[in-house]
Structures are given as structure tokens and as C-alpha cells.
Design a protein around this nucleic acid. Structure first.
Lengths: 328, 328
DNA sequence: GAACATAAGCGAAACGTTTCGCTTTCGATG
DNA sequence: CATCGAAAGCGAAACGTTTCGCTTATGTTC
């Protein structure tokens, strides 16, 4: 493998000049060409380890997700990779398999890798544990007070979706949420309750079904809702997988949307686009989340730390289709 | 940040001894304890860049996927991470967004990162382009002659599933496959045809629907099949997303499985488990794929290259449930 | 108790960069 | 033509490890 020394020898220039060239310094046009040719000729590639050793920067960030098997995170992960690459960073991905015990272990593992920063969607880790890592960290999707976070406005998201159902005359509105210990699920439940409060309606707690964030939960809880007497006239699902499971349950019961039941999904572009008519859905701005997280982290890694943790709350979109029927 | 030098000073031992300790060499029990304590005390962490510079190994492998948004790859990716970690390797994940033009660029990018090896699920890249990278590479899911690959036996997988349908009396069997340019899709189509040939049945080409590997394709092609006159009595889907789309189409048409139509899915544990009755499914051994790929690559990175590229073909499982009805 | 084998520890060089402070080159200016 | 300043280039040290070849300590054996 050719080194900078070989390029220097080949061009007759010094190592320092080659380094200058590599890092965008001033080099005579003539030499610039010769260095370029030499690099081409020798197939020289920068040795990142040596550079990292000198600069004390690995140009790598760790991304820790609850699960790679969740479409929301998988997609966001792909976006983050793009944005990081644009800033010259590589990305090491880990998942903690929705296990808080593994979460902190993986964080320590990442930190031990001498990476420059961490992006994490936390579940059980505390602010103290995170600051103890002494590494720039930006939280994603879920916030912890005192730390940089990028989240979506879950309360407003669900509030607006439920409001949409209310103004269409619905009063018995089923809601399927994830585990309340996760802040996103808790906030989404809150959004539901706020919408009801805004319209002076009382919440029937039986209509709020708490389960996991997975397809099976969506399916199961949807069936529970449909088994009620009377069943809800509309149902709001609060995650991608819950949406998929709930729709499957509805179809299995041979219920037509929106004729037999109204429905609002979450984070589901692909599948619902396929339906005729498509399903009204809350859409989180995944690319924007990825971008915000990346830019914020890049700033922090660049040393821009004013001591004020930033909380970026992004707006969701309610994509209206024809899955909401009108009552009364 | 404490260095090995600090640990040496703290313990009164030499740098060389600390290094020996770190790499598992022989050190007096007493010193071993003192070094451990010093490391703890000083919060010493190995500097991977320095180590990589000396050893010429980054202990990192690149994983390049067609897409992170495909459950099959996302799941396998999570497994690979586990296995690599067990061998002391980290993983850098990239996706080429199903774009062959980006594929080779990402490969070069990965190689430029001085990683020790690459795992890739290729689409358009050639054997020459890959060997030109001069980096140990193992292919996953899709094989290229002359290169190490780990794939599943797609032909047998579909053959056996279709055979199952045939012995249940089905003759008009719909088949939804992905883009035939991808070897997996091509092989799955072949498996279908072989099953028919084995039973001296002629294939109705109209029943083989070629589309994308995505949910929308599954949905669309399923509707096409259902619109035929007469429609097939059974349908075989050949990927996870195709399965999801096809089932949605069936439910939308209010068809009950298996009473109205028999169905075999692919790679779908989660969703089909949710149904009552669950759907018969071809299951690829994802964890085993991840393990084989990792072990093979680790061997190659360890220098075990006998010049004979290895093709590992893993068996799929047909998970039988009650989604197949009997005809006649 | 001498001789020896083995275990444990050590010093120093080397890995491929970046960067500091210095020297050389060269054209412009008075 | 002498002087000057900016631009370009250079030499060498340093980053934190691993490892080679060596010395010293520790038992063991006759």
C-alpha cells in the first residue's frame, strides 16, 4: 500500500507538501497536477488510522437504535448515513434489541470505539449515564431533559388527527398506543386526550388500548376494539407497525374503510398508498429528523457547545385521504 | 485521555508490559491486578487508531445492502452486527438504494475507509470490479461466480412450496416474483417451473407475475391474479413485502384464506403469526445466513484464502400452517 | 550450590499521518 | 538593483500503539 512518503518520493516533493495538498492547502498548480498524477499512479489512499491518530478524530459516529427491524428507524438510519457522509463522517450502527440493559452496554461499547459522536434513540438510559460518556450525543425521537434532542411533536400530531375525526362527527374513537414508558407513546396518548378536552368530550378509557409497538399488538388491540359493544366508529393507530396490524385485523373482519369504520394510521406511506382509497396517515418527517440530528451533532462535534442543550421539535403532517367517514 | 504510557507510569511497569497485558500475554498475577486497577483508576481506553496504525487492521467491516428498508436485509444486518461483535469487529453499514450506479461508488467508498473486509448483497457489480477492490469480500443472498457467497437455495425453496400446493390438488397456482434481473427472483421463478415439470404439468405463463420486490408490487400483482378468469386457486408470494402486499389485496377483496384461496408467503414470520389461522411460509434462515457470512469473512480476513471461492447454499424451511386448502 | 531453562519485563523502533516553525523562491516595489 | 513580503516548500517531532530482541528474575534439577 502506497503511503504519503511514496507520493513524496515519486514527485520529488516533501511529505509536508503532499499533506498540504491532501488537506486543501496552497500548492503550485504544476505540483498539484504532478501530485494528483502520482496519487493516481501509485493508487495512494489515505490511511485513516494514521490520520485519526494525529488529529484525534475518527470521523465516525455511532448510531444506536432500539431496533433495526422497525421501519421508522431503518429508514431514518439510511437517511442519517447520507447526511453524515456529506459531512465526511462514517456511521457505525448498533441496535439494543429493545432491551434497556443492552442499551447502556452498547453505548459504552460505542464510546470505547473512539468515535466522535453518538446518535441514540434512548429507552431506559439516564441523563447522567449519557453525560458520563463524555462524548457528543444527540438524542433522536425521544428526549431527555438537559440533552440535545430531535423529536417530533407527538402531542400535536395525534391531537390534530383525532380532531379531524371529531369534526367528522366521531365520538367513539379507538386509540392504539405503544408502551407508555416510551415517551413517544405517552405523548401520543396525551394528544388524544387533549383533543377530547378541547371539544369538551369525555374520554372512555376503555377505548385507549395500550400494547407494544409491533404488528402483533396492533392486530390484537384492533380486534379488542372491534369486539367492544358498541365498537368504535373510528380508530387511530399510533405507529407504523400498529397501523399494519390494525388494518390487517380490520380486513380480516371484512370491514371496509371508511364505510364500516374510519381509520387514521401513523408513519405508513408505502402500504396505505397501495389501497383504494388510501388511508389518512400521520407522517413524521423522517428525512428532516435525520438531517436535524446530523447537523446538530456535527455542530457539537465541531466544538460548538454553548452549554444550552437544544430541543428540536419537528412538525408532523396529516396526509388526508378518504379513510375517514362522516357521522351524523 | 489516559494512554498506555500513563498506565505504565502509574504502575511503574513498562509500556511493553502494559501492551502485553492488553493483548493477553503473560504478566505476573500481582502486576496483572495492579494494571487492572490502574486502568480502572485512570479510565484508560485503548486508542483504536494507534492500534490500527501499528497492526494494519481496523477491526471494522463494511456491510453494503441494496436497501435498509427491506425487512430481510434490516434483520440480517442486525444479526451480522452481533456475530461480528463477537469476533471483535465493528460494522459500517451502507445502502445503495437499489441503484447499481451507487453500488460501485459505495463499494469504493467503503474500501477507501481502510476496512478489513466487506459484506455485500450485490445487484449490478461485476466480479472484476469486486476483485479490483483488493479487500476480502463475501457476497450475501446473491452470488457471483468466482466469489465467496452465502445464499439460500431459492430453487428448492419455491419448488417445495409449490409442490405442497400441487399435492393439495392445486393446478392454477399464481406466482408473484421480483425483478428477474436479480438472481434470487430468477431462481424462485425457476423453482416454480421445476415443480410443475416434476408433475408433468404445463406452466401457464400468465400466472407468473413479475414485478418489484416491494409491497405495492405484491398488492398490484395479486389483484391482477384475482382478476383473472378463472382466478388461481392458490398464490405463492416470493418475498416478504410481496407477501404483505398480496395478503392485503386478498383481504381487501374479502377473500378468506384458505377457504377462498390458498396462499404461501415468504420470509414472513411476524405478520402471519398474527393471523388465525397463520399463513404457510417459506422461511430463510436469516441468522444462519448472517453467521455463515460472518464466519467466512472472518476466516478470509484472517488470511485463510485457499484460492477456492466458497459457495454456501443454505436450506430454507417451509413452515406449514393452515393457509393451504385441498382441492378435489 | 552451580547451571540452566523459562517466565517476565524492558527499551526502542516503527506504523503513516499532521503541523509547527523555519527556509527558500520569486515577483513587486521603490 | 537592493529590499521586502507573500507564497510555497521543507524537516522533524509527535500522536499511541505493537513488537523485536534483549536483559533480568525465578525456580528446578543434578
Amino acid at each position: 500500500m502506497a503511503t504519503i512518503k511514496d507520493v513524496a518520493r515519486y514527485t520529488g516533493l516533501s511529505i509536508a507538501t503532499i499533506s498540504k495538498y491532501l488537506n486543501g492547502g496552497n500548492v503550485l498548480e504544476d505540483n498539484r497536477r504532478r501530485i494528483g498524477a502520482a496519487i493516481e499512479q501509485l493508487d495512494y489512499k489515505v490511511n485513516h488510522a494514521a490520520r485519526a491518530l494525529k488529529t484525534n478524530k475518527t470521523m465516525t459516529v455511532g448510531v444506536l437504535l432500539p431496533s433495526l427491524y422497525t421501519p421508522f428507524f431503518a429508514l431514518i438510519c439510511a437517511d442519517i448515513e447520507q447526511f453524515l457522509k456529506a459531512h465526511g463522517y462514517s456511521m457505525i450502527v448498533c441496535s439494543y434489541h429493545d432491551d434497556p440493559a443492552e442499551e447502556i452496554l452498547k453505548l459504552r461499547f460505542l464510546q470505547g470505539l473512539n468515535i466522535d459522536g453518538i446518535i441514540v434513540a434512548p429507552t431506559g438510559v439516564t441523563a447522567d449515564e449519557l453525560t458520563a460518556l463524555k462524548t457528543p450525543i444527540v438524542l433522536m425521537d425521544r428526549s431527555i431533559p438537559g440533552l440535545d434532542s430531535v423529536v417530533t411533536d407527538n402531542i400535536a400530531a395525534v391531537h390534530d388527527a383525532v380532531e379531524e375525526l371529531i369534526v367528522h362527527g366521531h365520538r367513539r374513537i379507538g386509540m392504539i398506543v405503544g408502551p407508555l414508558a416510551v415517551t413517544t407513546a405517552f405523548e401520543r396518548k396525551l394528544g388524544y386526550e387533549r383533543a377530547f378536552a378541547d371539544y369538551n368530550l369525555t374520554v372512555d378509557e376503555n377505548l385507549i388500548r395500550v400494547g407494544g409497538y409491533d404488528i402483533a399488538s396492533g392486530y390484537r388491540e384492533m380486534l379488542e376494539l372491534l369486539n367492544m359493544d358498541p365498537p368504535p366508529t373510528a380508530v387511530m393507530a399510533s405507529s407504523h407497525d400498529i397501523t399494519v396490524g390494525a388494518i390487517m385485523a380490520a380486513y380480516e373482519r371484512k370491514l371496509k374503510i371508511p364505510e364500516d369504520i374510519s381509520f387514521v394510521g401513523y408513519d405508513e406511506e408505502q402500504i396505505t398508498k397501495v389501497f383504494d382509497p388510501p388511508v389518512t396517515t400521520v407522517l413524521q418527517p423522517m428525512e428532516e429528523i435525520a438531517q436535524s440530528v446530523t447537523e446538530l451533532l456535527v455542530r457539537r462535534m465541531g466544538g460548538d457547545d454553548n452549554g444550552h442543550p437544544q430541543l428540536i421539535r419537528l412538525k408532523t403532517t396529516l396526509v388526508r385521504h378518504q379513510s375517514i367517514g362522516t357521522i351524523g
